[in-house]
Simulated assay, not measured.
Amino acid sequence: MSNRTPLSRACLLGLALALAAPLAQAVKPADSATLPAPDAALQAAIAGSWRDPADTARDPYRHPGQTLAFFGIRPDMTVVEITPGGGWYSEILAPYLRDDGKYVAAIVDPAAFEAGRQRDYYQRGKDGLAKKFADGAAQFDKAVVVAYDPKAPSFGAPGSADLVVTFRNVHNWRSAGQAEGMFKGFYEVLKPGGVLGVVEHRAKGDVPADDKSGYVGQDQVIALAKAAGFELAGSSEVNANPRDTKDHPNGVWTLPPSNNHPEAERARYQAIGESDRMTLRFVKK
């Protein structure tokens, strides 16, 4: 995974935890005592020097170690991450799985769209992730990229994945009318007994499919998964944030890290932190 010595990894992890401690305490997960602890290899990946400092600054809000441990990740798994965006979780997953497992980044295929703004948007995302992987070959050289058509999503050979994960994406699929197809695709690529892990901005209750806030009702996400054939195997409050009132003028994008708000209100939204999020684990029957 890296040529770091065990000692340097441990030191770096300790420094990262020490720096994050005040913020982590402010957003301490409600059920942290019952969550499984991340293994040593996962802790080392989270502490990796290759991670962007802007990304590590989000760790106290996103709890990557506890979240992935809750999903039951192991270093020998085949893990598919759906729409990894700029690669926040890729920086952890690809090195963690590099030696004994397999990391698959499933991205939207720009060619699925006609020439124009949408194709350009997805092409920029594809190129940005490719550059991240190329610039960090020591960590990402074994990462696999799969491009999918959101109108008929396929994320790999049927029954080829142990774990599918997706972070803060369900609201986009619902507004585009793609959510049902996406969840069916997750079910198809997973092995029997495979796990789907979902983190999503949590609304106070059900919201319309065309809701623009970025939040989704937890029961709505569970219903999508069950309709695709999954069983709910657990939920966690590891990414909960009770300070999030969910009534911001620009939805979840008002909050960090998007910070879509007037500069005069910065302190107010920094005090809230990132959005309140559901963390759900589903199992393929």
Rank of each mutant, 00 (worst) to 15 (best):
V221W: 09
V221R: 04
I222A: 07
A223V: 14
A223P: 01
L224F: 13
K226R: 13
K226Y: 06
K226E: 15
K226V: 14
A227H: 02
A227K: 14
A228R: 01
A228N: 03
G229R: 00
G229L: 08
G229W: 03
G229K: 03
F230V: 13
E231W: 00
E231D: 14
E231L: 09
L232N: 02
L232H: 06
L232R: 02
L232V: 11
L232Q: 08
L232P: 01
A233P: 04
A233L: 02
G234H: 08
G234E: 14
S235R: 10
V238Q: 04
V238K: 00
N239P: 03
N241D: 07
N241W: 07
P242A: 12
P242M: 11
R243V: 08
D244M: 12
T245N: 08
K246W: 07
H248T: 01
P249I: 06
N250I: 03
G251Y: 05
G251C: 06
V252T: 12
V252H: 00
W253S: 07
W253D: 13
T254F: 10
T254P: 09
L255A: 05
L255R: 00
P256S: 04
P257R: 00
P257A: 10
P257N: 11
P257F: 11
N259T: 03
N259C: 02
N260L: 14
N260P: 00
N260Y: 09
H261L: 14
H261M: 14
H261E: 10
P262Q: 09
P262G: 08
P262D: 15
E263F: 11
E263R: 05
A264M: 09
A264G: 02
E265R: 02
E265L: 10
E265C: 01
E265M: 05
R266L: 15
R266E: 15
R266Y: 14
A267S: 13
A267T: 12
R268D: 07
R268M: 15
R268P: 03
R268N: 09
R268F: 08
R268I: 13
Y269R: 02
